[in-house]
Design a protein around this nucleic acid. Structure first.
Lengths: 304, 304
DNA sequence: GATTGCCATGACTTCTACTCATACCAGGTA
DNA sequence: TACCTGGTATGAGTAGAAGTCATGGCAATC
């Protein structure tokens, strides 16, 4: 038994696991049971003769062997897809770029860059999808996006260590802000002191495990009171406007809040810079991806 | 069912069939029965949704869809092999070239070029194998050799039409000769007239179907008398020396016949030029293959 | 200490992918 | 014409791969 006896299915399953980060999520995505995924991976590991994944409580991480196999599995999948396209008489993937972006890039930066790109390079076709920063990094490594706009927070270290280092370029670098109801006592000033944030009611995001809780000012020395939970920015901001509480807001969104909301910087705490970073895996970027990268940088520059 | 549901085994089988030219030969090579190969191909064709092979009485030929799938199957196999090498901690295939050569290139040209190459570029590792010209062309297309020394005869047209045209370069271009026993009446002159070849006894190669019969002068207007059959050049030439008959001999071998054999040109018939041609599939050749190609050309130039 | 979110595994079932034997088909030869 | 040869296809049977379900174990969190 050797890797040559692996199956395309096993490689696809492995890639999905690498992308989703857990067997369970990969199983759901593929329409299998978790147990089927577990067995596929076990079989693949037996074929390869080494562990591909390090099982940890919050999911799995690639081992060195896993990184090798993932890279090849992605290449194999690309060949198979290319064959399918050719057989269907479709054009190659030449002018296509797949972009991933994390939520707060979706309101300004990404649409703006896409509009610009369509004007300047109409031949480039972009497909895109939203995702959390860790999910996007896994997607880059799993080859399911070519380019990703991710978020980093202080201390802005390299976002993972699971393989060849990501190439990155900082798009924007500004500080987190708070959105307060216009009727709120704090709305009067031109900034908020971090001490004033104690005891406030917050409108938070889902605190689903692993991902940090969004919406509540980080580093408060108390357990925050989360009065409302919402995933959507527009909903959150309307809740703020309705006076239901405060929420944090990335600076890129500051310009597009509804009436009844004031956005203010926060002073007196540690730096809460939020970088939007463009990330990709291998240099050089293919031409269409490079065009998109330029458009994103241009949009970041004008938007700031 | 789509090509994405194909299996690595099926792709490997398909590639082997493309290389061997028949299901039966592929089955033998892979240790399967012919029926297993037939079913694998049928399944793959169903998955792809098109015929991959045109069944003909003497074997199979690739259809257009088959050419597409073969190219991708080769790329997939390369990825898998690369993964295996990486996992085993071996170096990549960087400095390796796989050469194919047809029989009469094996006595002079190939060893000479390899010796020269080892001297000038010791970092290049060459593996090589013998094969008939059609087999070598299939091997090129199946990606199992990188470079091939093949033979062509008049009218020297492109050797096949099964896919992207082969790149070629002529190495040598000389005429077929006959080897006669030194004791034979014809051995006295400095050439032989084609008319004198009638009624002679010949030492032939295996006339196994498809491949043309080697050893007997082509185009005789009689059924030749094949007194002995041998595959090996040295055996053939020793049979000639023993006075058992005549045989044809490619010019590259003229200089290395044993005592008791005379090699003579033939006049009076149509041109029986025999070209040795270097062939490969995709430009540009990777560096190590290019070095080998140069060495082969140099050897061809000095040898003539 | 209970709960939650992971992965592994035993028991069972289905379906895939072999083998063997045989049929079939086209060309070449007696 | 009939037969042989060298090829592919296919019916029948079987072993094993690859799913599902149900359950168990483990580590972190509340």
């Amino acid at each position: 038994m050797a890797i040559t006896d692996a199956s395309l299915v096993a490689l696809r399953v492995f890639r999905e696991v690498a992308e989703r980060g857990t067997f369970t999520a990969a199983a759901v995505a593929l329409g299998y049971t978790q147990s089927a995924v577990s067995r596929q991976i076990a079989t693949l590991e037996r074929a390869v003769g080494a562990d591909l994944l390090e099982r940890r409580h919050e999911g799995v991480r690639l081992t060195t062997a896993g990184q090798i196999v993932l890279r090849r599995a992605v290449a194999v999948a690309e060949q198979v897809e290319a064959a399918a396209r050719e057989l269907a008489g479709l054009p190659g993937a030449g002018g296509r770029v797949r972009l991933g972006w994390f939520t707060s890039a979706g309101t300004g930066l990404v649409p703006q860059a896409l509009a610009e790109l369509r004007r300047t390079h109409p031949a480039v076709t972009v497909t895109s999808r939203e995702g959390s920063t860790p999910a996007l990094i896994r997607a880059l490594r799993a080859g399911s996006v070519d380019l990703a706009v991710i978020a980093t927070e202080p201390p802005h270290r390299p976002p993972d260590t699971d393989g060849p280092p990501l190439r990155t370029r900082v798009l924007t670098d500004r500080s987190l802000m708070v959105a307060v109801p216009a009727t709120h006592p704090l709305a009067g000033g031109s900034f908020v002191d971090v001490a004033d944030l104690r005891g406030q009611e917050w409108i938070g995001g889902h605190s689903s495990g692993g991902e940090r809780l969004m919406g509540v000012w980080p580093g408060l020395d108390e357990r925050p009171v989360v009065a409302h939970v919402a995933r959507d920015w527009l909903a959150k901001l309307h809740l703020v406007a309705a006076g239901c509480g405060l929420t944090t807001i990335p600076p890129v969104l500051a310009g597009m809040v509804p009436a009844g909301v004031r956005v203010l910087p926060v002073r007196g705490g540690p730096d809460e810079g939020r970088r939007m970073t463009l990330a990709w895996l291998y240099d050089p970027l293919p031409a269409p991806a490079a065009r998109l990268a330029e458009a994103l940088e241009a949009a970041a520059a004008t938007g700031s």
